[in-house]
Design a protein around this nucleic acid. Structure first.
Length: 124
DNA sequence: CCGATGACTCTGC
DNA sequence: CGCAGAGCCATCG
């Protein structure tokens, strides 16, 4: 074709919005007291291998959605937000508030992660 | 277009 | 456990 049209731009926005929505839904599905990795959420949302996208979307997501963003951790169980920041402390607090063990900024995924059989029970 | 930057991950040593 | 390297990819300057 030729130049970039207004429709192309709108399509991009729409795609981005859909992407965000799918990710938001996946995060919202994480039950209280449990956690999931960025990569697991990415896969669940339909974007396997795109873990970085999750952090990006969560960071942009409006607070009014009350997303359980704190239940999303790195694959090794560590908090993804840079240590020492406000978000880091907030995530730590929220997790502990719902009974999740956080030691040295890390959560034992073997005990709180919803991998294996549990994830199937929740996400099918 | 390029390079740098992350709320990332996996493999390999 | 740590580090390097390679993918990943939207954003930014």
């Amino acid at each position: 074709m030729h130049e970039t049209t207004m429709n192309d731009v709108l399509d991009d926005d729409e795609a981005r919005a859909l992407r965000a929505q799918r990710i938001i839904d996946a995060v919202a599905a994480i039950p209280r007291g449990r956690v999931a990795s960025y990569s697991a959420i990415a896969a669940r949302a339909g974007y396997p291998g795109r873990a970085r996208l999750i952090g990006r979307v969560l960071g942009e997501a409006p607070n009014r959605l009350d997303l359980p963003w704190h239940r999303v951790l790195r694959a090794d169980g560590k908090i993804g937000i840079p240590a020492g920041t406000r978000g880091y402390r907030e995530q730590c607090r929220r997790l502990k508030d719902e009974g999740v063990v956080v030691k040295d900024g890390r959560v034992p995924m073997s005990a709180f992660g919803l991998d294996h059989d549990l994830d199937r029970a929740i996400w099918g």
